[in-house]
């Protein structure tokens, strides 16, 4: 099939989702009223926009994740050839991991992995 299958499946996905939604759009008539489109907030009118700026402690995790994610990317080619290369690969990855583990320990010590 090759990479064309990606396009085929993408189309299938669009057809699947689009088909389902469009049936409802075409055939189901909904009642209209003023409150229907409002945001649901437990039955109380919502106050202000919900797209407010948002103090959140997640971004530190995203930061650290990004860096480890890159590390992960390097692991894949390494893992594929580790059996052929042998002990050398283990040593290389030991150094690699050691340095990163230092990073993790540092982050832990600094409290970056504590939820703020």
């Amino acid at each position: 099939m090759g990479s064309a299958s990606l396009i085929v499946l993408m189309c299938a996905g669009i057809a699947f989702a689009g088909g389902g939604i469009s049936i409802a759009l075409l055939f189901v008539k909904g009642s209209k009223n003023a409150q229907k489109g409002e945001a649901y907030e437990c039955g109380i009118p919502t106050k202000g926009t919900s797209w407010a700026q948002f103090q959140i402690g997640y971004y530190l995790f995203a930061l650290i994740f990004l860096l480890f994610d890159v590390e992960l990317v390097f692991m894949y080619p390494w893992a594929v050839v580790v059996k052929q290369v042998g002990m050398m690969a283990l040593v290389e990855i030991l150094i690699f991991f050691f340095i990163l583990f230092m990073g993790l320990l540092y982050a832990h010590k600094k409290g970056a992995l504590k939820w703020m």
Partner: peptide, 20 residues
């Protein structure tokens, strides 16, 4: 604060209940 849904420090005011 109640009017704009957030306070000045960027806090979010959110209703929990009556139907929750």
């Amino acid at each position: 604060f109640e009017e704009i849904g957030t306070t000045e420090e960027g806090d979010l005011i959110i209703n929990v209940g009556p139907q929750h």
